[in-house]
Design a protein around this nucleic acid. Sequence first.
DNA 1: TAGATTGTTAATCGATTAACAATC
DNA 2: TAGATTGTTAATCGATTAACAATC
Lengths: 215, 215
Amino acid sequence: MVTSIPVIRRLCRYYRHLEVLIEQGIERIASRDFAVMLGQTASQIRQDLNYYGHFGQQGYGYHTVDLHRALGDILAVPQKFPTILIGAGNLGAALVNHIDFVHNGFELIGVFDCAPQLVGTCIQRHTVADMAGIRAFCLQHAPQAAILCVPDDEAEQVADLLVRLGVQAFWNFTHRDLRGLYCEDIVVENVHLNDSLMTLCHLLGNRMPPALQTG
Amino acid sequence: MVTSIPVIRRLCRYYRHLEVLIEQGIERIASRDFAVMLGQTASQIRQDLNYYGHFGQQGYGYHTVDLHRALGDILAVPQKFPTILIGAGNLGAALVNHIDFVHNGFELIGVFDCAPQLVGTCIQRHTVADMAGIRAFCLQHAPQAAILCVPDDEAEQVADLLVRLGVQAFWNFTHRDLRGLYCEDIVVENVHLNDSLMTLCHLLGNRMPPALQTG
DNA sequence: TAGATTGTTAATCGATTAACAATC
DNA sequence: TAGATTGTTAATCGATTAACAATC
């Protein structure tokens, strides 16, 4: 086995559910019980974890705090990559307000927009800066990741610019796939809310047996 | 093969890319060219489509307009399921402003919140209604889907209530999995923005070969 | 008809599950 | 030690790809 995207998403789930256990003061968990909690097989959990190392102990299970820290390291959460948000409209602002960046491995260091009526306004502790200054900002602060909340038809162009300014990761909320970038050492997570909603539409219009609903 | 979630998501992609082709005035597309456009194999496209019917023609390819309509029907897009949004905070408001519901198979018929300072305010053409009136509203208008933008710890409780009021589909933006509902004929699309961001963190922290980046 | 391209089967590949020996 | 539970291999399952006959 190798680290495929589904495995990574499961690791995130494990990470979060461990937090719940730790909050509840639970010190150890067996793969069998964890599997019940997560609604998957114990085999899969052990398989997933074992790819990265030996985090458990026979006859005991997994130590919640240790495993949580180990998974955090694997997921690179403690690295807090410096990040900029491009596009401070409704969605961009909502993300700033709604997402706990630090807890997910990033630190938001700048918010940019090109609309004059938005530049200078505040979202949380961030003042929206003019896109005109993006180049100088990147040269100085070297953000490694960018959140794209720009209009669809600007996506590619903005991404290209940012790649040239050293950005290596994109959290893409536009409805375009960012693909031209893949050839380089650039990583992209396309969110595609439209596809997500349309998937729900299909599920509702063609009610499926519960076994298939795990998305 | 059977309709698994990955297949449905690909159908959504085909649907959207067909729109681009149609806009460009292109009448026919061969699976081979479509595959290049989408960055996947022609075999997979034909396999996916053939599960639902014979939409192509040997020696010709696929008629873009016909295939688009056929996929729309499969995805249930024309059904425009009546939908309510629960939670008109930042994220909820951003979704109302940002998402083209009708184009994705839903019609937004109500927006609800329990915060007195939000009730009565307007988002687009929707006046935020008080959650206190949700029961009466559902009995009268029978929404089939709900968008959950409530605080995490209210997710399960709100969802339970809505299920009892006849809601059959959830687009869930809370960070909890909605699982207790699966046993019934209820469908859920969990968005999990946190996991999405953490996945990007892992990709950035452990740069992978491009082949694995297709999420 | 000849060329093109689908529809469909068979082969491959990868991911999940089951089973059990190792070991705490 | 005995019981429990992991780590790991082997078996199963499902999804993707390749190949080619059918056919427009």
